[in-house]
Design a protein around this nucleic acid. Structure first.
Length: 341
DNA sequence: AATGGAAGCTCCTCGCGCTG
DNA sequence: CAGCGCGAGGAGCTTCCATT
């Protein structure tokens, strides 16, 4: 199946990215995030910090490892499970309801895959919907297993796989790319675009959500579909130009359903919101008998010709070209005589 | 080289007016 | 009056050029 091939291709690119960036991170000098001033102090602080993190990771991983040896899985309190943005796969409300009802009566076949977090608790690698279902069913714990593979593989892989689903909102895509960028600070828009199979401009556009005012991001957190990246980009630009207040007000009105996205941008840019741009377009229909042969539309400097068939358009093209070349010649001689004066 | 921004293209949707 | 076609604008995307 084509889709699967594409998915495999993207996922394989994804693992490449993880390796590449891992390698880049490994090659980076250890004092990159330097805080101390002297070299020995930098190294000392770095080693202490690294050891501390290492110990915490080891402790949490050991607990899960023990559980796995004991029987492969452990019951984890739902309150200890945390979601990582961009990792959840899409599911319709109907599909979720089906899953929940299934789990109400049957026991969990596939345990939730989790990984220990530095800040405590566990992050869900896969099984977000199963966890949600258990929460709705009022259960206290859920069966979990320690995930294999690296954290980055899990996040990046799940996100890029999700990206193939068009029903992910632009804001959610932004959260995913942002998370990847947080994990791989060396990743550029270009490299992420390559891995995701989208254009670089698309990534840049999505990342523009980053520059929106905090209140707008909070609204989007609750309603991710409110703003698409095209308009997010415009509003981010206006925010940078110092119109953050107008942007927030515009998004509030957008959220209230009073205006659409285009009007929101106009409103935020402080331009008077015109009801509708005055169009002075004129359309002339050239008829062949009773049917329209060609519809000719003139608006400012645009002339549009629409024929009934491709053949008609082709047939006229050569004649029009000759006409336009003659006109261009006239304009040219007029220009040269003008410059001689 | 990376990123930002403008412009243009295409597809889609919706309202309006014409026609049978 | 229902069905249809058309016009116009919205939305989503890419490409190209400018800027950092």
């Amino acid at each position: 199946m084509v889709t699967n091939k594409l998915k495999d291709r993207l996922l394989s690119r994804t693992s490449n990215l993880a390796e590449k960036v891992d390698a880049a991170v490994a090659n980076r000098p250890a004092d990159a995030p330097a805080r101390a001033n002297t070299m020995p102090a930098q190294l000392g602080a770095f080693r202490l910090e690294a050891r501390e993190y290492q110990e915490r990771i080891q402790k949490l991983t050991d607990e899960l490892e023990q559980a796995r040896k004991a029987g492969g899985a452990m019951d984890v309190p739902l309150a200890d499970l945390h979601e990582v943005p961009g990792r959840r796969r899409h599911k319709s409300p109907e599909e979720f309801a089906e899953l929940r009802e299934n789990l109400r009566n049957n026991k969990l076949i596939h345990p939730v895959a989790i990984r220990a977090r530095l800040e405590g608790g566990f992050e869900i690698v896969s099984g977000h919907w199963r966890t949600d279902a258990y929460r709705e069913l009022g259960r206290a714990t859920i069966r979990c297993v320690l995930d294999e593979g690296s954290e980055d593989e899990a996040t990046v892989g799940a996100f890029y796989a999700n990206l193939l689903q068009s029903d992910l909102t632009d804001y959610e895509k932004y959260l995913g790319f942002k998370d990847i960028h947080r994990r791989f600070p060396d990743a550029t828009h270009t490299s992420m675009a390559d891995s995701a199979g989208v254009s670089r401009a698309a990534v840049t556009k999505l990342m523009s959500f980053e520059h929106l005012p905090q209140p707008v991001l909070e609204i989007l957190q609750a309603r991710p579909s409110l703003l698409t990246a095209n308009y997010g980009l415009e509003l981010a630009r206006l925010t940078r130009e110092g119109k953050a207040e107008r942007v927030v007000e515009a998004v509030n009105q957008l959220a209230a359903g009073k205006i659409d996205q285009t009007q929101a941008v106009k409103f935020a840019s402080a331009d008077p919101v015109k009801a509708r741009p005055v169009t002075n377009a004129q359309t002339v229909k050239i008829k062949a008998g009773r049917s329209v042969y060609c519809s000719m539309r003139t608006a400012s400097k645009v002339l549009r010709l629409e024929f009934q068939s491709e053949e008609d358009a082709q047939a006229v093209q050569e004649e029009l070209r000759a006409l336009l070349e003659r006109r261009a010649e006239i304009v040219k001689t007029a220009q040269s005589s003008e410059s001689e004066k």
